[in-house]
Design a protein around this nucleic acid. Structure first.
Length: 933
RNA sequence: GCCGAAGUGGCGGAAUGGGAUACGCGGUGGUCUCAAAAACCACUGGAGAUUUUCUCCGUGUGGGUUCGAAUCCCACCUUCGGCACCA
């Protein structure tokens, strides 16, 4: 082994500082619009100004920087900007708790984060940095609000917020604590308060947001989440009427089940509730409404808890069959979805089924079971002699235990035959029932079918008459049947199937039913086709100081008046007084609130709500193009034409629905008002996983497993931190930190350092052609692997391949290939391929081997398939799929020779001795499998 | 409850129909040293044998397809993530 005493040691602290300074001085990462080169806009989600760059930021940013560098080396003019999401609640809390102005707190944090970001050595376009809380930025956020308002996409409506009555403050969801939902500051139980708030009409774009997903290369996971979030469903709106003739519109996805609607449920907040409630039910309804309002939407929607509801005393008429049905209120019906009222079809909706069983409401099946299954339970005394034989003759499956027949029927034919057979054999004092399908109660003198509310009661009465004890206790026929374990699995289903018990529609097959009924509803003018989305309009009002003020003025004479464009920005006053309760200081800031009406010049008041920070981050990728732009649109259109849209976006999966949906919405609106000419903001998306602590748990202060990247940057260097984060595992799967693992990376860098720089005496002999070819082959294979891996964000295997290559070079260095042309090329390529991952040490090594500045402006190495090809391969020989021999053969060995060589192996011969060869399988370049019997 | 992803050595992981465990960590032994650290070298899934070679077992569990399965199919178990009565 060569001694390297005279060569310099790898000193990351020194070289990282040196090169960061040099890069800055030479403007290596300055952005230039260069139409002669293809562009690549690489974007990583902007950080919130929390104050410290933690390892999670590094995990998100370092690999995306490496990818951006890779694209740059591949000939792209890469734009890789950075900025800060700077408005938000924590800054305001700092002001309240420590008396620091939110602006100072935020800007100090940014200063610290900039330093930490620089230590990463990323190729950020600092010249395009954008900070969302600066007037030059939020001026345009406000401009967007005005444009949305102008186009009818911003509107004001009442909406309930969590509110602390003692602090007189709106609370965010994370400020409401505990089961009893109390205020985080003072512990007072939180109430709901209705406030006038501003909304963006994102639902106008619901359909397009859904369809656009097919056009973008995003992870399927994210697309699925967005589809579910938008939640499109097709159905019909149907108008029921109360007995007092009030129209009550419901939305249903199952108009084909209308005949089975046996009650209605309104959301407790439904406007008709108070009007329809009868005096004797008033108190119960009031109590129920109060407790529903106290719950959070999450609690209300929890599937854990048992369904509750209250009858309001009123009835409605089912428009399709004239049935009189009771009206209930229940918290499982939400005012915010559909029409806030449903028709309940307990026979084919699981929640309605549960609700009806609990409250004894009738359940009438109206859709046939698609699986054709029916069941019958018959006590022996209910039938006459010969029943058993008749069943056997008909080939009907049954079990007999404890004096009863348990019969399972499959298909129409068996059902018909059984009904006939039952009529013949039913005892004069008994009956035979069929559930699941048919729904018949066969008595000696008559057959009753469960096909209407009236028949439900008639059946019960008749059964009581026949002396059935359970029937006298049951409120509905279904309840009675549900009491018998045997029937449980056939009583309910929610599938499409042939309509039954539905008047003229009975017999309509399941695949036509929905459409046929909807058409009929339209003809009869009692309903119409309707698409409903789960997606709500976007509530953007925040009763906070630290956000972009909503540019609206309220004038007593002129009403709601938008701030004229030329008056933007509406500045946040610097001299705000922060109350300990968290109440927005804007409301009490006379200088801010009082203004004059832009229309009439009279006295007027400003809107004191600010905008949701998601508004700021919905257009930041455009702001980066030309931050704090001073033209008459938010960004320089010329530069935008060159850079937009974003080619590669990276960030956490937690933004799958909110941010990523909002920014898509913004882009579509921007297109409609002529700012951009494309539909989707980000063409490709990659979600990194989560970095866990050394103990495989989520990092948290309470667990004490938080990793501070600055510590490692100081000791092992940024290059080691970057490389280790990329080496942990597949980027999208996350991984856990390891303090010994990163030392392994540091050792690797040292080995690269020494293989490149340690001097060695010139070899005594000339390298052979074979040695050279071997080196070149290994090099080209490595380039191929690493290139593909970088393309696919597989940094972990790229690094593994580079380590392997380096191990190879360490050995090769001791041979005669050292100092050959091929050797120099291999060393150059090793440095080039490592450059995106560890930008500092590669720049240093590049300089030391005499490469021109900078390594980061060099071209990515190209590989040659021809040179990468193996000449000799290991042929695996299997007998019955088990490896019995391996042999070295020329890569292009003909099939018959390969088989012949395989059969000559002693161990192979042993395993096939005395057996018959049935088959020989040959996979070129890989294996021979001899199948024997 | 529903949807999605995953389960491979002591650990992080590699291999997506053909050699299981690449690469790294950790461990063991060695070289160097007065010694230690660092560095370097070798070995490192388990069991067995007639031990320089070979056999068997082994990718969450059970079955299946195939000449051949970590990989494909079916059922189940576990973990993680997301969503939450959406009519």
């Amino acid at each position: 082994m060569t001694k390297g005493a005279q060569r310099p040691k790898y000193n990351p602290q020194e070289i990282e500082k040196k090169w960061q300074k040099r890069w800055e001085e030479t403007g290596l990462y300055r952005t230039v619009e260069d139409p002669s080169r293809p562009k690549h806009y690489a974007l990583t989600m902007l950080p919130y100004t929390s104050g410290d760059l933690h390892i999670g930021h590094w995990y998100a940013m370092a690999p995306s920087d490496a990818r951006a560098r890779f694209m740059r080396m591949n000939g792209y003019n890469v734009f890789f900007p950075i900025g800060f999401d700077a408005f938000g609640l924590p800054a305001e809390n700092a002001a309240i708790q420590h008396g620091i102005h939110p602006k100072k707190w935020t800007m100090d944090n940014i200063e610290r984060m900039r330093k930490q970001l620089r230590s990463m050595g990323a190729m950020w376009a600092w010249d395009r940095e954008a900070i969302t809380c600066l007037p030059g930025y939020y001026k345009w956020t406000q401009w967007f609000f005005l444009k949305f308002y102008e186009h009818g996409l911003a509107y004001r409506a009442k909406a309930a917020v969590d509110f602390c009555p003692k602090c007189n403050t709106t609370l965010a969801r994370e400020q409401v604590w505990g089961e009893d939902r109390h205020c985080e500051r003072c512990g007072t139980p939180v109430i709901k308060k209705e406030l006038e708030q501003w909304f963006f009409r994102i639902t106008d774009y619901a359909e397009e947001l859904l369809e656009g997903l097919d056009k973008i290369d995003w992870p399927e996971r994210v697309k699925t989440m967005q589809r579910n979030w938008i939640g499109r469903s097709e159905g019909a709106n149907v108008v029921f009427r109360s007995e007092q003739d009030d129209p009550i519109e419901v939305f249903t996805t199952r108009p084909d089940t209308l005949w089975g609607a046996t009650f209605m449920v309104l959301a407790p907040e439904h406007p008709l509730v108070d009007k329809l409630t009868t005096p004797e039910n008033r108190q119960a309804v009031q109590d129920y409404k109060y407790q529903a309002a106290r719950q959070s939407e999450i609690d209300r929607l929890s599937t854990e808890k048992e369904k509750t509801g209250v009858f309001i005393g009123a009835y409605a008429i089912n428009p399709v069959n004239g049935e009189r049905i009771p009206i209930w209120i229940a918290d499982y019906v939400l005012m915010t979805y559909g029409t806030g009222a449903i028709m309940a079809v307990p026979s084919h909706d699981e929640r309605d089924f549960e609700f009806a069983l609990k409250y004894g409401l009738p359940i009438i099946p109206v859709i046939d079971r698609p699986d054709g299954l029916a069941k019958s339970l018959v006590p022996e005394k209910h039938v006459r002699e010969g029943f058993t034989e008749a069943l056997k003759r008909a080939g009907i499956a049954f079990e007999k235990r404890e004096g009863s027949f348990y019969i399972t029927l499959k298909g129409d034919e068996q059902l018909d035959e059984y009904v006939k057979l039952a009529q013949e054999h039913v005892h004069p004092k008994g009956w035979i029932e069929v559930a699941g399908r048919g729904w018949q109660f066969i008595f000696a003198d008559q057959v009753l079918t469960l096909d209407s509310v009236a028949s439900d009661q008639a059946i019960l009465a008749k059964l009581q008459q026949a002396g059935d004890k359970a029937a006298s206790q049951a409120r509905t026929t279904m309840e009675l049947l549900y009491g018998r374990e045997w029937y449980r699995d056939v009583l309910f289903h929610a599938e499409y199937g042939t309509m039954i018990h539905s008047g003229e529609f009975s017999g309509t097959p399941g695949d036509k039913a929905k459409e046929a009924v909807t058409k009929w509803l339209e003809e009869k003018e009692i309903g119409h086709f309707q698409v409903t989305y789960r997606l709500h309009d976007w509530l953007i009002s925040r009763q906070r100081y630290w956000g972009a003020p909503i540019p609206i003025i309220y004038c007593e004479k002129c009403g709601v008046v938008p701030v004229p464009y030329e008056d933007l920005p509406v500045l946040l006053p610097d001299d705000a007084k922060f109350s300990p309760t968290g109440e927005s200081p804007l409301k009490y800031h006379e200088g801010f609130v009082n203004t004059t009406c832009p229309k009439c010049g009279g006295p007027a008041k400003r809107e004191t709500d600010t905008m949701d920070t998601f508004v700021c981050s919905s257009w930041y990728q455009y702001a980066y193009i030309s931050p704090y732009y001073e033209g008459d649109v938010p960004f320089d259109p010329e530069k935008g034409k060159y850079w937009l849209p974003v080619d590669q976006y990276t960030g956490g999966i937690e933004h799958a629905t909110m941010h990523l949906l909002y920014t898509r919405f913004f882009t579509k609106v921007m297109r409609d008002i002529g700012l951009v000419d494309f539909d989707e903001p980000m063409l490709h998306l990659f979600n990194q996983g989560i970095i866990l602590g050394e103990d495989n748990e989520k990092m948290s202060k309470s667990r004490g497993n938080v990793v501070n990247p600055d510590d490692y940057v100081q000791t092992l260097g940024a290059d080691s931190v970057r490389a280790f984060l990329m080496f942990i595992g597949p980027w999208d799967e996350g991984g856990s930190w390891s303090s010994t693992g990163i030392e392994g990376i540091f050792r690797f860098i040292n080995r690269v350092w020494s293989v490149v720089l340690d001097p060695r005496e010139a070899p005594k002999e000339k390298a052979s052609d074979k040695e050279i070819a071997d080196l070149l082959r290994t090099m080209h294979k490595t380039i191929k692997t690493v290139t593909n891996d970088f393309q696919n964000f597989k940094f972990n295997t790229a690094l593994a391949a580079l380590m392997k290559f380096n191990n190879y070079l360490i050995k090769a260095k001791e041979t005669n290939v050292y100092a050959t042309e091929a050797w120099d090329e291999a060393i150059r390529n090793l440095i080039l391929m490592l450059a995106p991952i560890m930008p500092h040490v590669t720049e240093e090594l590049w300089e030391r081997i005499g490469g021109p500045y900078s390594v980061h402006t060099q071209s990515w190495p190209k590989y040659d398939e021809e040179l990468a090809r193996d000449e000799v391969i290991t042929l695996v020989v299997q007998v019955n799929g088990r490896v019995r021999a391996r042999l070295q053969v020329p890569a292009d060995i003909p099939e018959d020779e390969a088989k012949k060589a395989a059969l000559e192996q002693p161990n192979v011969r042993r395993h096939i001795a005395g057996k018959e060869i049935v088959k020989e399988i040959y996979v070129p370049g890989r294996l021979v499998n001899i199948v024997v019997r």
